[in-house]
Each structure stands twice: as C-alpha cells, then as structure tokens.
Design a protein around this nucleic acid. Structure first.
Lengths: 237, 237
DNA sequence: CGTTATCTTGACGTACATCAAATGTCGTGG
DNA sequence: CCACGACATTTGATGTACGTCAAGATAACG
C-alpha cells in the first residue's frame, strides 16, 4: 500500500496540496526534511484508514481524493462529521485515541506522519503549531455551522446548504463554476445531513422543481440560481 | 460592569479557574504580567457578551458561572452549540469576526483579553499555544459527539446523553455525585439538543418512568441508575 | 398570597422515516 | 453495439417520532 514516490528526495516540492495545507509553513530549503518524515500512501475507495478507538499514532494530510470522517452508534446508525479533501489535516485527537473513523470515498492519496515525529517538527517550526491552531479553529467554526444544520434546519435547507458548501470547496479547484461534482453517493450525503437517502433524493427533486438546480447524472449538479439556492438554505433569509 | 479586583496586583493567583484553563501554563512568577493583560468582568444572567458577526477583538476565559454559545437563523430558530463553564476559553474565530454569540445563563465571571495582547502572550509562551491547540482539539471532539447526537439520536437518547455530559462537568467540581444541578432552563436544553421544550420535558418523564432519574425541582436531577442512563443514551449499547 | 414565568401533560398535526416498487446507471460479456 | 445483471437513485404509499397548540400544574417572586 505504501507508494514510494517517483523522486524520493523531494516528493513535497511538487505536492499539489502543499499550498493548501499546514506544510506551507515549511520553507523550500527544508522540504527535504519534511519529506523524510512522511510516508505517501494511496487508499482505495471504501477502505477505512482511521478507526475510532484505535491508538492515535499517526496524523494525516490528504493530498488527493475525498475521505469521509464519521462516528457510529452500537446499532449501526452513522453520522458523517465531515468530508476531508486536498490539504485537510487529520488526526487531532487530544486524547491518544482517535475519536472518529475515516474511510476513502474515492481514491485517496495521503501523507502519514507519526505522532512523535510531528511533535519534533512542531517544536522546530512554531509557525506550524500556529497554523494548526488556525486549522482547528476553522474546523470548529464549520462544526458549529453543522450543528445548526443538524439541530434546526429542514431537509431541503440541509441539502441546499450542503450544495453551497460543496461549491465552496469545488471553487477552490478550477473546473466549471456552475457544476458541482459530488464524489460521495446519496447514502454518505444522508449520513452527513442526518437524513435518509430517500429524503435527500426528494430534497434534490424539490430543489430542481424550484429551479435552483438541475441533476445531470445524480453525481453532477448544476446550479441554476445561486440566489434561490441561498434562500432555500435558510441562511441568507 | 468592569469589576476591579480586590487585590489589583494579583487577581490571577487565587483564581479558581487557573488550574482548569490555559492560564495554567503561566509560571507563578509571571502571574503579575498575566493579570496586567486582562480585565475581570461580571455578566448578568441573560446578557449577551459575544455577538455573532461582530469583530472578534477579544478572547474570554470563564472563571465562574455558565454561558451558552449559540447560532441563529434569520427566522429566529436557534442552536446552542455548547455551554461554557469554569476554565473554558472562548473566542477562537480564525476569521476576524465571531462565528457565534454568547450569553450568560446565570451570573458569569470572565477575564477578557484583547486579541493583540493575547498574541504577544502566545509569542512569549509557546506552551500556551500548544495548550490552546489541545483545548481546540477537545472542543472538536465534543462537537463531533454533538453532531452524532443531533443527526442520529432519538429524543430520549439526547436527553440521557445530555445528563451524562452535565454529570461529567459537575463531577469536576465537588458536590453530591448523584445529583446534577442544571443551570439552564428547558428552553436552553431544547435548543442545545435540537428539540422543543415539550419533548425535553416528556423525555425527562420517560427517564423517570424507566427508573433512571428522579426530578426534584426541575433543575435538580438525581441519577438513580447510571447504567440505565448510559444504556438509554445509546452509547454503551 | 396573588401574579407571572416555567414546566408538565394532553390532543392533534406534520415532516421525515420506513417499506416497497420503478427507474436509471454502469460494468461485463455475448 | 446491445443484452444482461447488480447496484444506486428516484418515486410512491404509509407509519411514526417529534412538533405544535392548548390547558394544567408547579415553582419563582413581589
């Protein structure tokens, strides 16, 4: 599973995720050291690479693809707490066990850091610790937003908000600005929004009927009216 | 509103919250400097001291009482994202505007730090930044747990989980181990759990019927069977 | 003690879940 | 290229947990 990079000396220099991730604080001249600390891996779709409750020995940085982060109840009910994409840093646990599981949605590439190694890196680069605090703060803001969604929004509002969120992510990478490609299926969307697949599907249908979107192949959603979508999301009034 | 401490030189030394908060990383000899950076304030019940969208000029440290943190939708729907109690650090925003509001539940005492002053303090005490990262990580774990609750748990499971959480907090401070005093009313509990006050009330009634708890004055809940409460919370099977 | 706010209980409505079937999508092999 | 099967998504019919509306019960307060 471990993929040896083509150029063993400098896998980090050409990394697409670098500018988007905590690694951006490492200066060019020290990239070599950064590269020596990490293992690049590929994870096949459906494969779980973090398991809730396991010792949190490693940290991860997503460099390609999409992973889902989730928690489960004993009887199988699942809540996806977020999707991790390029540049996303994973594994902050505070305690020494993971508090969630992570599974690849499509083919994921990631860098794995061992906890003690990252600790040493943080000691040498205080700016990186600051950057991590920023990352954690942003995730906290996103988590609060999601609590509002899960606790108080209707099904249609949830799906509309989800699309707006996915658009924000897609916007970072190029691509046609009005068409969103969803890497995850309806079941993952449902488990992210606290709904069932049927209700998610019906909500897409209603958004279509309201003229906010058009579905192309279920995974490709075209935004017809951003204003209408915003209004249906319940945030912009 | 600003309360001048009795002993202006060292309000931090005798602070009840110090051991529980980020301030614990400051050595005794430097407490004087810490004290010079902060303003101690009292906030009356019902008073809002952070407003979502306002410039995030200050950080806060709760030293007594309970505050609720919340977000609202345009039409008045509200989601309480957490309750902040002694030792809780508030104001991490990443962007320069608050992403949530905060209001005192009962009488709150807090320390206010201006953003640039805290920044300088962090530069001098790298350990404090590390501590803040731990704090943020713990909050992230709690937020994920709450997402599971809001997205996938039933009303009774939510209320049982809430009581277990409040017990964990109450356990830190002395007091009778089996009786929980709830600082907040039913409306706040409902807005925290994504329910209505009626459903919260009915869930308390069901927990009572199941022999898990007894209500004394609506605000004082006695735990009769921790096992039964855990099982009803849906986590321990 | 009355007055008022908060909490509990009851009757009923509704948004979403569940169960079930139809339709669409995609990979595989004829 | 088309036929087939497996799986994902959509649509429909019905059930239910929780919300809404309304009335009592209880506690807080002057």
């Amino acid at each position: 599973m471990v993929v040896t990079p083509g150029n063993a000396a400098e896998p980090c220099r050409g990394c697409d995720a670098r500018a988007l991730s905590v690694c951006s604080v490492i200066e060019d001249k020290d990239l070599c050291r950064l590269a020596s600390l990490t293992h690049v891996e590929a994870v096949e779709p459906g494969r779980e690479f973090i398991t809730e409750g396991d010792p949190a020995d490693d940290f991860f940085n997503i460099t390609a693809g999409t992973a889902k982060l989730f928690k489960m109840l004993a009887d199988g009910r699942r809540q996806i707490t977020g999707f991790a994409q390029i540049g996303h840093f994973l594994g902050l646990a505070a305690r020494n066990r993971y508090s969630f599981s992570a599974e690849a949605v499509d083919r994921v590439r990631l860098c794995r850091f061992s906890r003690p190694r990252l600790r040493r890196l943080l000691d040498d680069y205080p700016a990186m610790e600051r950057r991590l605090l920023d990352v954690a703060s942003n995730e906290l803001v996103a988590a609060q937003e999601q609590m509002l969604l899960l606790g108080r929004k209707t099904a249609v509002e949830r799906v509309a908000s989800f699309l707006l969120g996915q658009m924000a992510h897609g916007g970072l990478r190029g691509g046609s600005p009005r068409v969103i490609h969803l890497a995850m299926g309806r079941e993952d969307i449902a488990d992210y929004l606290g709904l069932t697949i049927e209700t998610v599907s019906r909500s897409f249908t209603r958004l279509t009927g309201d003229g906010a979107i058009v579905r192309h192949e279920a995974a490709n959603i075209e935004i017809l009216s951003l204003d209408r979508l915003r209004s249906l999301a319940g945030e912009g009034g």
